[in-house]
Design a protein around this nucleic acid. Structure first.
Lengths: 211, 211
DNA sequence: AGATGATGTTGACACCGTTCAGATGCACGC
DNA sequence: GCGTGCATCTGAACGGTGTCAACATCATCT
């Protein structure tokens, strides 16, 4: 029995702990940062003993991967939404780039966790490259912006380049070194667009240009 | 006394522990990865008690920052060297990009540590932006490749864009999703050059192009 | 009803970062 | 030359962590 004495106080075993643990982890991640995200703290937050998670995840790592998985879903969704609501197909790329960076800035701990676990496995979660996911959305936006959909190799390279560039920008965009430039440009938004403009043009240049 | 029994075996107090600790940390980092990099393990490796480091670094974090600092120096050096030995000024950018990614691939744990500590402080170490450092080298390479040295704002944006792109590529380039494309292109090197080619052209496009 | 298996708890182990009181030995004033 | 001061190192301790084995509890199937 815990704080709620009236409703149903701590059912038989728990219900579904897996989900509760992942949610607890995300709550801790956003409220107190990655440094406070211990398995014991998650168990505590979910109102359960420190060993309980081991019946649902073989590892702390496995729990974190589940949390990261949710993050990738959210990011994919943000990308899809950005392309859908872009002013014109030609501007979809910039729209996606902005949405991507905004996601990273609004969920910094989660974003970092996503790439930490990905790098450990040397792979993004599989569903990111399937249909209707973030990756294919970028590909579509590139085509909409003028890329040749028949040259698969160049299209893939451009997609990868775009993704890498957005990732790098997302991770570095609030480094202190950039502050003077940001202020000179009148704010973060202008700065982001400025850098993204380079990314936006590069893809087309790379696809259309010589060689 | 440690492995070297003849020279001077464990001097008075130690000699200079700071340096020894940083070197021990780097050894552990490369041999066993970041997960094994505990303060106690570093002290153990340096042949000293677990509390000894606290007379030289106020924190584990401070030690790690010292290690990362050395990494930034090495990276800067690699960049300078890459530009110096480039076949032609116009190819300096691609040369730098390759050197950057190679550095990250050859020192993965160190590279990751460098950005982890940087993100925690939301800043790169200050000396990376000074003269004769990596950042200014990229800027020079951009100018050599045709960028307008008088438009400072665009030049800065291009430099940042290049850096972000290289960083993203360095972190993601051995994700498993890219393996088929790599094989189709005949190896990692070709793949890297393929993506870098997009980066290389983008900067110029961004600098010369409309808007 | 009784066995079974999934799920939760308790207690333990080794390790971690950090602190503090005390030992150690170099450097310097007399 | 020698004692004193001070930076440095050690040892033991505290609370926290990930993980595991042994035990408890409950849902369900026969």
């Amino acid at each position: 029995m815990r704080e709620s004495g009236n409703a149903q106080a701590k059912p038989y075993h728990h219900g579904d702990l897996s989900r509760a643990l992942v949610e607890a982890a995300r709550r801790i991640l956003e409220a107190e940062g990655a440094v406070a995200l211990s398995l014991r703290a998650v168990a505590r937050e979910a109102g359960v003993s420190p060993a309980a998670p081991y019946h649902h995840f073989k590892d702390k790592t496995e729990l974190l991967e589940a949390v990261a998985h949710g993050g990738w879903d959210a990011l994919s969704h943000a990308i899809i939404e950005a392309r859908r609501t872009a002013a014109s197909p030609g501007e979809a790329l910039e729209s996606i780039g902005l949405a991507y960076v905004h996601f990273a800035l609004q969920n910094p701990a989660l974003y970092r966790l996503m790439y930490d676990t990905s790098r450990d496995r040397m792979a993004m979660p599989a569903h990111i490259k399937e249909e209707e996911s973030g990756y294919s959305e970028v590909q579509c936006a590139l085509v909409a912006a003028g890329a040749d959909p028949n040259d698969d190799r160049e299209l893939q390279l451009a997609t990868i380049a775009s993704w890498c560039a957005a990732h790098g920008l997302a991770e570095m965009c609030n480094f202190e070194q950039f502050r003077p430039l940001k202020e000179a440009m009148g704010g973060d938004e202008a700065f982001l667009r400025g850098v993204l403009r380079h990314f936006g043009t590069f893809s087309l240049a790379g696809l259309h240009g010589k060689r």
